[in-house]
Design a protein around this nucleic acid. Structure first.
Lengths: 349, 349
DNA sequence: CGAAATTATTTGATCGATCAAACTTTTCTT
DNA sequence: AAGAAAAGTTTGATCGATCAAATAATTTCG
């Protein structure tokens, strides 16, 4: 009755010592088979569950990773992070890891939180999202020897190969390249691109994917290519405006690619000719209104993040400095093609 | 050098005992002022942080609440839960509580997770979302004496006043009622409603809010009122279809209210006359495209959830059985009015 | 003023698990 | 078959904090 059973209770029931019970759970290999079975039976019988905090205290390991929950940024694209969070939680669970949330109002505040969670032994490491050039957070974590992996490559000049910085990212170039090729194979020649102002790490990558594919094909002049590109900040109404500009100034348009689903949604609205529009992020909104979109494959990202993080936990960080294992993962996104059908534009006939 | 400072280190530095240090942190009132200051100085000096797991082991309290991260359901409306999660994390933080995530594939699986997290002393209680009639989860939690609060009232017949079931919900009736009144005051008389099929706890509530306001005003006949209502499942294309149906069959329409932003987005697309459309949930999509919407006030919900949960932690559950404190909170949502301006429907002039 | 009451602080035990090292049993060598 | 090596199991100590009870310091009051 008195609370939950402990290792001692299990040991008593199975007729072995505490440590053997512990071994059955943590290094089953070193326990003789028949003993192990007896202990496992007792565990089941008593409904024993290890006390997570006690274990953490002793092992100095929390089996928990911390992640900051961003304030929903622009709204539509923010859902990528939600899906990532979900995938991360799910896969972490399968590895026996927990995901602890926290919030922060600024990078500096986030560093304070890092310190708090780390000092309190609440987490073993962190997952960072939305990194930016000269990010103070990664530097601080490296300096303090705290494990972390970023979703998003480091954008600083020298940082890309910093061995202490593990990262996973999605290959935006490849995503836009594939999207462009797909349209070209579908017969489109004059493919427009609505993107973000440079410099923007991710934005420039994506643009280059479109640009390279267009140049590779080579059936649009450089002048025309310039006319097929619109630069604008992110947002639905910006997408609408950009699309209107294109229709007036770019001549014939066979397809439109966008740097985000927000822009794509906007573009689609100002699009009575139903030119195929492709967005980026494959957000729920894209699915709902029937937009093609480049899917960031958050499952693979989450898997990569956990692989790197647990590899690190394995203790090889200070151990084998020249391990062959790569320090990052570049995930190839998937193009999701949808028909416009879902959204019957209601234009008076 | 050797790891982080402990209470003992602080005690040594301040020239007091471990326990006094502990008291300074947990019951500062019983420590003499000058002693307290000395200890606080030492804490600051050494950069001491209590070891969370050690404390949890001893106090048998984790200061952590568990919440299931739902798979993004319909996509657009799913973001309400994200915002709630964010608000919850932020406010929990201010109370010294942590938020731990988990996933589950079914209610049964979720119960398994409850057991795991509770037995392992990982969490002190749970927050449940998306409750439904006859929910097995709440019953199980009550039977096992585990603290929890639901976001969403219990929909079962007798459950509403079950004293063990603490809940916070948003008053959907009031939200739609206010939205209807706002349109009426703006001069609209024939206000249509696009809702979900009955029975649906939340859906029926919202519909009734519209209905009651319409009847109260009394300038639309019962027959007409019936024609102004469309029932459909949730989704953007369903919203579009419903709007088209209304335009053909409902006669003059001054405004349209919807049970969700998904429906509202769909309705708005099939709306060249620019009849005002109001959605529900105030999702980022609504903000992006300029839809009016009923905001669920997730901040208040989160505050209510934590109030109830920590009140419970305070230990009065088995203590004062007839406490005057209400066992639930009903939050009144806010109507957010937006102009259509953000989305210039691109109809050929 | 000195004993009782009150307040402040310290000491020893404990939460539940794992580590490190000691001990016992089994298996391998020659 | 005796001794060494390996495998399996047990014991005592420990992680860092708090609880409970004991002690010390201070205040109250007859």
């Amino acid at each position: 009755m008195g609370g939950f059973p402990t290792v001692t209770d299990v040991a008593l029931a199975a007729g072995v010592s505490r440590q053997t019970v512990s071994n059955v759970m943590n290094s089953p290999g070193i326990v003789r088979a028949d003993t192990r079975e007896r202990v496992e039976a007792a565990i089941k019988e008593l409904g024993y569950r290890p006390h997570a905090s006690a274990r953490r205290l002793r092992t100095r390991r929390s089996s928990t990773i911390g992640i900051r929950l961003d304030p929903t940024i622009d709204g539509i694209s923010g859902s990528v992070l939600d899906r990532f969070l979900h995938a991360l939680t799910e896969q972490a669970d399968a590895l026996g890891l927990r995901v602890l949330l926290f919030t922060a109002t600024s990078p500096e505040d986030e560093i304070t939180q890092f310190r708090r969670l780390n000092d309190g032994a609440d987490v073993d490491g962190f997952v960072l999202t939305s990194t930016f050039a000269g990010d103070p957070r990664t530097r601080w974590l490296i300096e303090n020897g705290i494990s972390f992996v970023t979703f998003g490559r480091p954008w600083g000049v020298d940082d890309l190969n910093e061995p202490q910085h593990l990262w996973v990212d999605v290959d935006g170039w490849s995503g836009l390249h594939e999207a462009t090729r797909a349209q070209q194979e579908g017969g489109a020649r004059r493919i427009a691109y609505i993107g973000w102002p440079s410099p923007s790490g991710t934005g420039d990558e994506r643009r280059r994917g479109w640009y390279d594919a267009m140049v590779l094909r080579g059936d649009v002049s450089a002048d025309d290519l310039a006319r097929l590109e619109v630069v604008t900040t992110d947002g639905v109404s910006q997408g609408t405006a950009a699309m209107q500009w294109l229709r007036q100034n770019a001549g014939q348009i066979d397809a439109v690619l966008c740097a985000s689903d927000s822009l794509a949604l906007g573009a689609m609205i100002a699009n009575p000719e139903r030119v195929p529009v492709t967005g980026y992020d494959n957000t729920p909104v894209a699915a709902a209104v029937g937009l093609s979109s480049v899917d960031q494959a958050v499952d693979e990202v989450a898997a990569g993040v956990l692989e790197l993080l647990t590899g690190e936990f394995g203790g090889q960080v200070h151990g084998a400095p020249e391990s062959e294992e790569p320090r990052h993962r570049l995930i190839t996104p998937r193009l999701v093609v949808r028909e416009f059908a879902a959204i019957p534009m209601d234009v008076p006939q």
